[in-house]
Write a protein that binds this DNA or RNA. Sequence first.
RNA 1: AGGCGCGUAGCUCAGAGGGAGAGCACUUCCCUGACACGGAAGGGGUCAGCAGUUCAAUCCUGCUAGUGCCUACCA
Length: 891
Amino acid sequence: MSDNALAKGYEPKDVEEFWRKRWEEEKTFTPAADAPGEPYSIVIPPPNVTGNLHIGHALNITLQDVLCRFARQQGRKVLWVPGMDHAGIATQNVVERRLAEEGKSRSDLGREKFIERVWDWKEEYGQNIRRQIKAMGASVDWTHERFTMDEGLSRAVRKVFVDLYNKGLIYKGDYIINWCSRCFTALADDEVEHQPQKGGLWHIRYDLEDGSGSLVIATTRPETMLGDTAVAVHPEDERYQSFIGKRVLLPLTDRAIPVIGDKYVDREFGTGALKVTPSHDHNDWELGFKHNLEFIQVIDEHGNMNARAGKYRGLSIAEARRQVVEDLQALGHLVKVEDYNNNVGVCYRCKNIVDPHVSTQWFVATTKIAKKSRDAVPSKTKIFPPTWEKTYYNWLDNIRDWCISRQIWWGHRIPAWTCRDCGEMMVTVDAPAACAKCGSVNLEQESDVLDTWFSSALWPFSTLGWPEKTRDLETFYPTSVLVTGFDILFFWVARMMMMGIEFMGEVPFREVYIHALVRDAEGRKMSKSTGNVINPLEMIDKYGTDALRFTLTAFAAMGRDIKLSEERIEGYRHFANKLWNAARFTLMNLAEYAESGQAPQAMDIAKAEGIHHKWIVSRLENIKAEVKKALEEYRFNDAAVGLYKFIWNELCDWYLELIKPDMQAGGEKRQVAQYTLWLALRETLLLLHPIMPFITAEIWRTMPGHQSGDIAREAFPPSHAEWVDAEAAAGMELVKGVISAVRTIRAELNIAPSHRLRLLIRPQSPAHAAILRENEVMILTLARLESMEISADLNAPKASASAVCEGNEVIVPLHGAIDFAVELARMDKEFLKLEKEHKMLSGKLKNENFLAKAPREIVEHDQARVKELTEAMAKLDSLRSRFREAAAEQA
RNA sequence: AGGCGCGUAGCUCAGAGGGAGAGCACUUCCCUGACACGGAAGGGGUCAGCAGUUCAAUCCUGCUAGUGCCUACCA
C-alpha cells in the first residue's frame, strides 16, 4: 500500500502486521531507563502456558492496553510486564494426555524425563500464547517477559518459602484435605467442583451400650461408619438430650463410641443425629478436635478400604458401601433408605469424586497474615467497582490456612530436605550439601511441589527482579493497577496482597479493576467443554483486531457480565471502515499537501470564519474531556460509545458534509476547512488510539504533517478552552434543524432526491435569519435546494409543505401532483407530538408544589419550553389551516 | 442457607432523580464525487409487578413473583 492513498475499504490484515512488526522492532513499549514521567506499571495476569487465549483474555488484555496506551499519552513512564503461568496441574494434565496418546504414562518416563517433556511443551505452547497477545495489539514490553518457573522467579519462590518457614508461617501438618484418588493429589477447595448427584440417605440404628435404647442416624456415606468415633446430637434436642454422655455400639464393629452434644448439628436434617467420622469428613474433622475424639482412617489414598475396615479391607468405596448396607440390613440395623440428591465434590479436571482425606501437607498460615491485606483495602488499594470490596472482605474474614503442597511433578519443588540418616529437616533456598545436624550427605528432597498460586502470588514483585534490589522494583513497585476478572479475586488478588505486604512491606497495586466475565449468548461461562467459546483469533481474522477491541471496550461496563455476540463485532467493523473512509476523504481533500508532506498552515479556529468549524472544534473539546475523564475512572464503555457517536454522528454525518462546499469553493474557505478537518481528524485519532491502535496508527502515518510517524508515541491532545463555543454550537443546531426539516418533508412526501426544492423561511428572529443566511450554501447543499428565501413577510403559497423549527417557519412550496392527505397526516402527527409535550409540561407548571419546591432552573426551563411549544403550535396550526384550504380548493 | 446482581425497543445491551438511548434486525427512498461495511427519513418501549419517599421516580426504599452468578453446606 502506498503511503498516500488509502484503499477503499479498511483491510486490517496488512495494516496490523505492519504495526505489530514495527512496534516490536522499534521496542516502542520498552521504557527507557532514564525516561521521564511518573511511572505507571501493570503486570499481566499470566495466562496458563498451555492454554489458548479465549475471549475473556481478549477483554482483559484490551482493557490493560487501553490503560497503558492512555497512560503513555499522559506522559507517564509505562511498563506493562507480560508473562505466563506454569499452571501446575493443568499443564501436567495436558502433557500426560499427550503421553497417553503415545501409550505412555509419566511413570514410564520418570520424574526428570517427564519434566523435560513438559518444558518442551511449554516452549511450544508459550509461543502460541505470545502470538495471541501480540495479535491483540498489546503494548507489553517483551524484554520484560517472565515465566513463573524461570530461574529468577523460582529463586523468589524458594526465598519466600524459606522466609515464611523461618517465621513460622509455613508449617507441615496433618490435615483433612480434598483428595483425588485418580490424580493422586490434594486439591484446593477451589479446585473442587460440585455436581448434583442422585444418592441415598441411609438411616441406621445404633444401640446404646447399656441396652437402654437406641438412636437412628442418617448418612449418605454408610461405608464411612467404620471410622465413626462418635455420634453427635444437638445439645438442646429433647429427643436426644438423655443420650449425651452415654455410649453406643457401632454396628459391624466391636467398638463403643460416645454420644456428644454440639450445636453444629442441624436438628431438622435427617434424624437429627449425626455420625462423626473425623478422618473422612471436613466438619467431623473439626468436631474431632473439639471433642477430643479418636481419628480412625478406614479409606486409603487409592480410594479403597484399608486394614482398619476389617473384613471390608480392599474394597472400593462403592463396593464397601454396598456391602456395608447389605450387612446392616442383615443385622437389622438398617431402618430405611431415602432417595436423596446431594452435591458431591468432583475433581475439576478428571471429574472423579473427591473424598476428604487426612494426609500430611504443607500450609501457609494465612489466617495469621490475612488481616493486613484486609485493612489495606480501600486505604492503600482501591477496588473498582467498590461493590467487590465486600466479597474480598468476606473471603479474608473466613479464610483458612492455605494448603500449598501438591502431589504432582510439574511445579516448584518444595525446598525442604530430610536427612535419611538422622531425620533432620532442612528448609533452604539452595540444596544443602550435607545434613546440618549429622553431616550425612544422604539427603532427600520433598517430592511435592507448590500450588501454582504460590508463585502467582509473588508475581507483582518477582517479575520486577525481587529478591534483588533492582531498579525496576524501585521504579515500578507498587504497580498502578491490576486488571482482572472477579473469578480469581480470592485465590490470586488476595494472595498477592498478602505476599506483597509481607515481603515488600507495601501493597502490590494501587488499584484493582475488576471487569466482567465474558459469557456466551445463553449467559454461560465460556469453556472448552461446553464448546461455546468464541475464539478471539477467529474474530480478529474475520473482522480485525480493532473491531474486536472496540466491541470489548464498548461492552465493558463495570460489574456486568458480557454476553458477546458476533454480530456486535461485525457492527463495529463497520465503524472502523467508516473512520477509514473519513480519513480517505480527508487525504483526498488535502491533496496539495501530500507531496510536501507538510501540515496545513495552522490558524486560530476560534477566530476563523464559519460556525461549522467552530462547532466541530467545540464538540471536539467536549469529547476530549469526556474521554479523558471516562478512562481515568475506568468507564471504558463511556469512552468508546462517546467516540463512536462523535465520529459517526457528528464528524462524518455533518461536518464532512458541511465542508464539501468549502472544499469546492477554494481560496481561503478551502484553507480553513482543510486545516480544521486535518486538526479534527488528528485529534480524533489520538483519542481513539488507545482503543483502536492499528487503524489509528495507519491513518496517522499517512496524514501530512506526521512524516510517517508513530501515533503510539504521541501525547494526548492538549485541551483548548478557547475552542468551546456555545454560540456556534447553538447556531449549528439551528442549521441542522432546518436541513433535517426539509429532508423529512422530502422523504415523507416521497420527493425524488434529484429534485431541487425551493425553500421559504419565516424566521423566528432577525438573529436566526442572520445565522441561516450566513450558512445558506450549506443549507442549499445538504437539503438539496434550488433556492432559499428568508423573510419575515414572505408570501407562501397555500399548497406548501411546512414545519416549524425552533420557531422558524420552514415552508416548501409544492407543485405538480401532491398527495394532500400524506402531507396533512404528517403535519397532524407533528402537531400531536408538540401538543403532547405541551400538555405534560403545562400540567406540571400548574402544580403549585412544583413551582414552590423545584429548583428555579428547572421551572424556568420548563416555562421557556412551554412558551416555545405554544408558539410552534400556533405557527404550525396556521400553516396547516392554509394547507387544508389548498387541499379543499384542489378538490 | 448466605452474599451479590439482573430485568429498558424484536434480539444483545448502555443510561441518568426533572424532555427514553446504541448496535443489529425492520419499513420507505437513494449506487448524491469518503464510505452500500454507505446515505436520508421512519416504525417500535405504561424502562417486570405492587406499595412507599419526593414537587417530580424508569432511576431512591420496601415487598412479591421471575432470573443469573458467587460462597458455604447439605451428616
